[in-house]
Amino acid sequence: MTEPRWLRITRPIVLGLLATFTLVPIYVMLTSALKPLKDVQAGFRWWPSELTVQPFLDIWDTVPLGRYFLNSLAVSGAAALLSVTVAIFAAYAVSRFRFRGRGTFSITVLSTQMFPGILFLLPLFLIYVNVGKLTGLDLYGTRTGLILTYLTFSLPFSIWMLVGYFDSIPRGLDEAAAVDGCGPLRTLLQVVLPTALPGVVAVTVYAFMTAWGEVLFASVLTSESSRTLAVGLQGYSTQNEVYWNQVMAASLVVSIPVVAGFLLLQRQFVAGLTAGAVK
């Protein structure tokens, strides 16, 4: 297809503008993290007056960032692993069995993803507080409560994406396993799962990212000891002045794990996230 000339000229301009729009905040985050405090207290400057890694050292002392980091790591890691485990079984059922209620299940689970978070927040808060009072099982203000909450947040999309991956695995493999005497569980664990491993890894990272970036529930359900990064990062602003260079350094540090994971698994993500929409 031959392109009209105006398109050949417009393309780099428009894509350049979009790239600038995307890059400006990222540039600000990267450069400001390397600025001394005086550079962010006076007017804005495009380049640090002197490059310093001091903000990266200070962020751990200004607020207990290390603890927030470990909390986020524990909560997101546990939520992701549990969510994917549960999702694998559910997705296998949806992908490989024809049963009554299959369509209803898929639609119901997916639609819960669409409900406003604020709708669950108030009841869940009260349920956790009162469950703790009645049974002694502390769900409010603990990592357990947050793990339980987050694992269900990523569950719908995890199931959806895994169904897509499982569907792309030829059924001939299952049948061969069945001929060899494998029950459905062994077929799943020994045949389907190893084949779908790249997809499973992508879904795990997705679930991890969901939990890592969640703000609303973290702001209400955590106490000082279980506080995660989403809330902890605001600690730099509650002091008399805002240490913007440290805020940027901390933002950078908390972004690296998830951005790296996302970019490494970009291909699987695109395939998985859009499988349902394109179908």
């Binding site: 905040p25 400001s32 970036g213 990062l233 933002s251 996302f262 970009q266």
Partner: peptide, 18 residues
Amino acid sequence: FLTPYALPAYAAIITWTF
């Protein structure tokens, strides 16, 4: 172009605040 989607929401938004 996909990077803003991958960044944790609070880290990206707080950069905008600055």
